[in-house]
Design a protein around this nucleic acid. Structure first.
Length: 200
DNA sequence: AGGATGATTCTCT
DNA sequence: GAGAATCATCCTT
């Protein structure tokens, strides 16, 4: 199975966020495969006051300005790790936050890492999925085609994807830059207002 | 050096 | 749905 090519991360960031729904995210941290299909993403794109990159390059967000197709891993609220896929050409600070996956591979390992045994509690949030997959700051900047962290394409990509407003931000609340797999019980929160997404 | 601020999670109501 | 926990990062003195 071939990982997503870098070209897949070079389109407009919201388009990448939509496209990633259904793609397979696999971690092999610790030599154990964990992961599953992506069911929730958010775009942090151009001229976006909600983005870490909005006020320019800093030490934390430097990876966002690097090459597309790499992982941007940052610490949230001092305790959680969050995983992004860097998008756009070098020099632009854009990324897609991977917010939730459907837990499929390495369930026992993910249960142990999370300290929770209900399937829906394993990967239903950006901090949760990093915990379940063993992702931490040491993976910041690694290619998403690497042995440690890989995103694979999925045949059914595109169907059943809906958009809604992003979660946990205070700026640019009107942008429909959150994407979820319609009806998935593994998202962080059920979207209040779902808007259909056109598939090209 | 100090203060404000979260791209969150968990628990309780 | 609301509130607490918790601390690295960033910006302002």
């Amino acid at each position: 199975m071939t990982p997503l090519p870098v070209a897949a991360f070079e389109r407009e960031t919201p388009e990448v966020a939509r496209y990633l729904i259904g793609c397979l995210l696999i971690s092999r941290v610790g030599g154990i495969a964990t992961g599953g299909p992506i069911v929730e993403t958010e775009a942090y794109g151009k001229d976006d006051p909600a983005s870490h990159a909005y006020r320019g390059l800093t030490r934390r967000n430097a990876t966002m300005f690097g090459p597309p197709g790499h992982a941007y891993v940052y610490r949230s609220y001092g305790v959680h790790w969050c995983l992004n896929a860097v998008t756009g050409p070098i020099g632009t600070g854009e990324a897609v936050l991977i917010r939730a996956i459907e837990p499929v591979f390495g369930i026992e390992t993910m249960i142990a890492r999370r300290g929770r045994d209900r399937l829906r509690d394993l990967c239903s949030g950006p901090g949760k999925l990093c915990s379940a997959l063993g992702i931490d700051g040491g993976l910041d900047g690694v290619p998403l085609s690497s042995d440690l962290l890989t995103i694979y394409p999925h045949a059914d990509n595109g169907s059943g994807v809906v958009s809604s407003v992003r979660i946990g931000i205070s700026a640019a609340r009107d942008r429909l830059w959150r994407f979820t797999a319609r009806g998935s019980p593994y998202v962080s929160r059920t979207p209040s207002r779902e808007v259909p997404v056109s598939v090209r």
